[in-house]
Design a protein around this nucleic acid. Sequence first.
DNA 1: TTGTAAGCGTTATCAT
DNA 2: ATGATAACGCTTACAA
Lengths: 330, 330
Amino acid sequence: VPAAPTMNDVAREARVALKTVSRYVNGESNIDPALAERIGQAIVKLGYRRNLAAASIRPGWTSKTLGLIIGDLANPYYSTLTRAIETYARQHGYLLITASSDEDGGRHDALVDRLMEQRVDGMLVVPPRRAGRSWDQMLPPIPPLVFLDRPVDFEHADVILADNLGGSRSAVLALIRTGARHVAFVGDDLSIYTIRERHRGYLEALSEARLPVDEHLVRTDAHGAEQAAKIVADLLATTEIDAVFAANNRSTVGALMEFGRSGRRIPLIGFDDFEAAPLISPAVSVVSQDIAEMGRTAARILITRLAGDDSAKQTHVLATRLILRGSELP
Amino acid sequence: VPAAPTMNDVAREARVALKTVSRYVNGESNIDPALAERIGQAIVKLGYRRNLAAASIRPGWTSKTLGLIIGDLANPYYSTLTRAIETYARQHGYLLITASSDEDGGRHDALVDRLMEQRVDGMLVVPPRRAGRSWDQMLPPIPPLVFLDRPVDFEHADVILADNLGGSRSAVLALIRTGARHVAFVGDDLSIYTIRERHRGYLEALSEARLPVDEHLVRTDAHGAEQAAKIVADLLATTEIDAVFAANNRSTVGALMEFGRSGRRIPLIGFDDFEAAPLISPAVSVVSQDIAEMGRTAARILITRLAGDDSAKQTHVLATRLILRGSELP
DNA sequence: TTGTAAGCGTTATCAT
DNA sequence: ATGATAACGCTTACAA
């Protein structure tokens, strides 16, 4: 394995000083054309490539690298988000290191440490469900930081959220508008921020429509699609529900599974869009987040911070959109 | 913004020499417990973090970072692959820089250059459809390299492929077994390696079943779901087809869209599984690749290479699996 | 066991 | 315009 050629090798080959090669490589203008020519040839001949890691240790220099920690890249929600961030980052000269925490605080914290040791210029973080250490006890310097999807009690970071509450509220109101009077809430645990917000939206809608809240219709133990299916089966058998609001993707899928199995179907709206929603019949109505927009916004804010913006930290709430495709109808 | 504390700062704070801090940080054993104690406290007090970028420029040291170039991270195929690679990498102490080429050769090449400048220890690459420069003209040193999903004419890299041909062959044979005699092939352009292989599998199956090849039933202009839907509509209207083999995901979705619109349905098997396949009725039969296994295999091979394995480069072909869910039936 | 000095590949200072 | 020299934060001979 031959060693990678260095600037010194190029300088020797081109018979110029190290610094001149540095100037050439950094695109500075004041170089004798003859020398520039020799340097260019030497670079091609030796196959020289800059060593950005070496350059980045110089004071005032940066790695031009961002770190992203999400829950699970295999989840379409996160991969869409990641792709949007990656694209924006690349357009601005940044590479993106992506890592999944699997919602585990310990793993998340280890990744934060590792990314900081790698000296990423900034970090985008989806806080894990099972929280780890607090950000407050972390000593500076902490690179510019943006939290995604879930808020964190840490004032030195920007936060980007989706309007979970408003989206849920409008979905449940839509179900009520088509005649539902007993709307079930099927979702994961209320300890999860997004679910909690969506539940609040559900309650607000009921209250606004002057409908009573029936605790039996609120199920927050749907931790997966299979479980959600069972819950919907149970609700259909033991209650008077006439519509389902599925508070997350897997709950929606679970409800659809049960509808398919039992042959019985009631109005349904789910939170978060999914690829096959329009393919199912009737096509599934959903509350859709503009995930890519969230990613772009986060990347833009982070890179603006890196460019020196030190205005007050902000919390952005992105609109959600109700997409009615048919499944909300009786 | 306070500057990040360095080893020197820690050494001064703990009143020891720089080298002793280095020993402590690198977990060497021969350190006076009293000094170790002082160093540990200084590290906590100052919030010292190693600068891995600085460490990595030392000869013999590495960045413990891998680079991955795929087509589009928002595509579930790639995100599943990426997640598997990321997990394996992390378990072995590596971070992963992921970047999407959008199948563009120029962007791909730029990313390769950037990753090499960043001095990643190794690279995993899905060659872009619209190829860019040749790997052969690249000057060494080239870090250990693994190609994924598509072969490349470059001998200094390992290659991991899926058994596209075998999977397609068995799918088409399954359609024939349930009675089909005029199986259509709907897919993207044959210039794409995977489609070409799947087309070969289609031909092999027909030949094996002693069925004639009808060129009118082979459509390779399905570049998206909408287009595939139109193609299927056209085939249904103008030919005698009695089954569809959809050579990729979007073609499958397109066929389903047309089935839904027209109310007419014929046996269907698609290449590549997708989340909603079991939710549609009848559930969609597919040829499934073990994408995660492909990712793990690639990561394992790469990291083995990084550990010094310089045995002959290999091409691995991973099995595909036919999953029959019902849509293959008349 | 601890420390000194050199050097990794790069950029910045400052003379020439 | 060019170059000698000193950093950057770290690890590694080699001394002490």
